[in-house]
Design a protein around this nucleic acid. Sequence first.
RNA 1: GCCGGUGUGGCGGAACUGGUAGACGCGACGGACUCAAAAUCCGUUUCUGGCAACAGAGUGUGGGUUCGAUUCCCUCCACCGGCACCA
Length: 864
Amino acid sequence: MQERYDPAAVESQARDHWQSTDAYSVREDSSRPKYYCLCMFPYPSGRLHMGHVRNYTIGDVLSRFMRKQGYNVLQPMGWDAFGLPAENAAMANGVPPAKWTYDNIAYMKGQLQSLGFALDWKRELATCQPEYYRWNQWLFLRMLEKGIAYKKTGVVNWDPIDQTVLANEQVIDGRGWRTGAPVEKREIPMYYLRITDYSQDLLDSLDTLTDWPERVRTMQANWIGRSEGVRLGFPYELDGESHTLNVFTTRADTLMGVTFCAVAAEHPLATYAAKNDAALAAFVEECKKGTAMEAELAVMEKKGMPTGLFVTHPLSGEKVPVWVGNYVLMTYGEGAVMGVPGHDERDFEFAKKYGLPIRQVIADGANVYSTEQWSEWYGTKSGICINSGKYDGLNYQQSIEAIAADLSALDLGHKQVQWRLRDWGISRQRYWGCPIPLIHCPKCGDVPVPDKDLPVVLPEGLVPDGSGNPLARLPAFYECKCPTCGADARRETDTMDTFVDSSWYFARFASPDNAQAMVDERADYWMPVDQYIGGIEHAILHLLYSRFWTRVMNDVGLTKVREPFKRLLTQGMVLNDIYSRKGDGRVQYFNPADVDVQVDAKGTRLGATLRSDGKPVDWEGMRTMSKSKNNGVDPQQLVAEYGADSIRLFMMFKAPPEDTLEWSDDGVEGAARFMRKLWRTVYEHVAQGLPAPLAGATLTAEQRTMRHAAHTMLAKVTDDIGRRKVFNTAIAAVMELMNTLAKFDDKSPQGRAIAHETLQLVVQVLSPIVPHATHALWQALGHDDSLMDRAWPQPDPQALVQDEIQLVVQVNGKLRSHIAVAAAADEASIREIALADANVQRWMEGKPPKKVIVVKGKLVNVVV
RNA sequence: GCCGGUGUGGCGGAACUGGUAGACGCGACGGACUCAAAAUCCGUUUCUGGCAACAGAGUGUGGGUUCGAUUCCCUCCACCGGCACCA
């Protein structure tokens, strides 16, 4: 064994060993329980960022841990390879997206390997490969056959100068990112998937996902957004014909408080009214031009204009004015709402602004407020109806029932379930994506590409220029014959949303080499994913789409599972400091590695200076690492400097996996320091020769304490990693034990045997986290088997036994004393010892105890 | 705006099921070794008062439940994630 810890040598040696023994390859094996551990696959952006390193370290630790628990562990890796950044890079450098993507994949694969992740590379896939995306196309055709896929118009961001569709990301303050032109909304035909057919199933099944974080389930439930209410109609006459304006409401109890109705700019009634009203037409146009983003819509100033049209209140017969409101969404419900300013905040704001009447129709118990006291009764939900004619006195539930019944009798309404979830639009007017397999024939209409002609291969050499989709300008791609009639036809040039690619890759990892089928029976062995790990930012879209896609695959008989991910861990983001300096009207950002921080005598941050010029820079707090803020850290540089193990140890120790992790160079240095200390401790131990195993002789109190500490650590680490999935406390327990061992200065044969046992336990429990160094240390401790495949150790029950325990004694809830009692002591004797304690007596001041609470193994509280 | 989350020493965090607040690490301070530096080792480190023993306060704010609250309930504040074409 080398005296000095040399991570580079140790790590390449361990990697060579695993590679030569093919340690990462995995096959189906019905004799062992399977464990499928999957990390969200990366977008090949160029280099791994620290978020990836954190994600994959968590997955690797769990994979290696479960392998040592006897599971047949699958941990694959692939590339989410289609997407916008490749097109942006192409525009910037003139390199085709395909080349850029494949080059990035090659580099990043090397990075992943240098970090020592136990990945089965034989299953590697990239979503931009025709062998992969042909199955997107194949299943899309099945969805068309089943009516799950369909065509309708949808709204997109349109850049009028570049004549191109923009992603939300490309819209900055309402303007195109390249042209600066105000972005418009435009309606174009698109393909949609009927995820809404699965609303109830997707919602109900959330209850079965008991190993998902509660917050993710709540977010998904809110996103699906089931609400029970009443759909009702306001009748009106237009050009001598009878119509109804339909709205949905969850507050039918407030129906008698309606003082207006508001419709979306896209609503037919708005279109009709705008025909003869230039001002209204201008307003409708303005609304239509505005953002398509919900977040921006929600904070916009509420604006409206009257249409001059009136509808009839279905129950009171009153005339109700119809307004156009910029806050009404055409995509939710009916594109129209009833306005009850007395009991809805948004309606109230609107009514105040435009002088519409406000009417109270719900009262809070006995309190009846005047209109002037609106703030006191406004928004009341638990109350009874007032000013509502025959419904007066009814509560929330009763009034809704009564009103729904009356509307039903008039054929003007009924109770209905409304969903917030919308169908999934998958058409993208972009080049670097999976082609949608359709052909547009002037005679036959939209004709699916026959299965035998799949895949529709994306030509790889094109370089997009930012104006429109290059596929639409490539006759070799879009010119084709109609598969039905043979006439000249045009191939669809839209590609699929990249969320399609990532909605089923987890199933493909089970049978990545199958050219005949999307998945095969190997998926039945591996699916579902037992542990899925990825960023919380994917809590809704990716996870919901994957759940939907898995259901469709199940419905067409491809797989047996309906839920793809059994257990979910959402890891937090990796943050780093941001330093900037303002000058010449420009903000300049400096990498934290180039900045010196000044602190006071206590270590409080005083300021920071740039190392190169010594002048001050401003600290802007911590954010995720990004190019624009120049606060990135290159994993490769760190691996070269400290070795992969120290980086892995730092990431797992710094914060619990679900929390954000604040990057710190000092923290990495600390992890490296621990690795050196561990190495040195083992070196100094084995340098004196390997001790004989622990014999059955009686141990001293110190020796018993040492063994107790070692086996308590083992039990804690096993629980922390296995059950709680937290690693920082597991590592802390190991560090604590190492501190205890450093003070355990016992060179007797027994003492050395206990030190040996302790070090073996430390090396074994650390092996999932720092696999390279522990691989070498295990050999140094006298073993010739591969630590990676060695079963996880079990604590010795004998070592865990204690004769005497320390209890805390409180008087009136305040800590006043400590007592030592026999581990087996009963409540009465504990009470007696506690009351006899001098400190306790002093604080009782001679008063008799009113109550004595004894919590076994923890504390005694004396109440006087 | 809506939905979800977070808030504990100088800093990251620990306290898992209502039971010793601050484990473990970083930083800082003091010391040892060294010609010196690095590395390493030892000690101190929530705040206030006190030489000390010790006492008091303390987990974003304000309130509540309890023998006992970082933990449960309500209020408010600040920050972070998502909002359907970034992935």
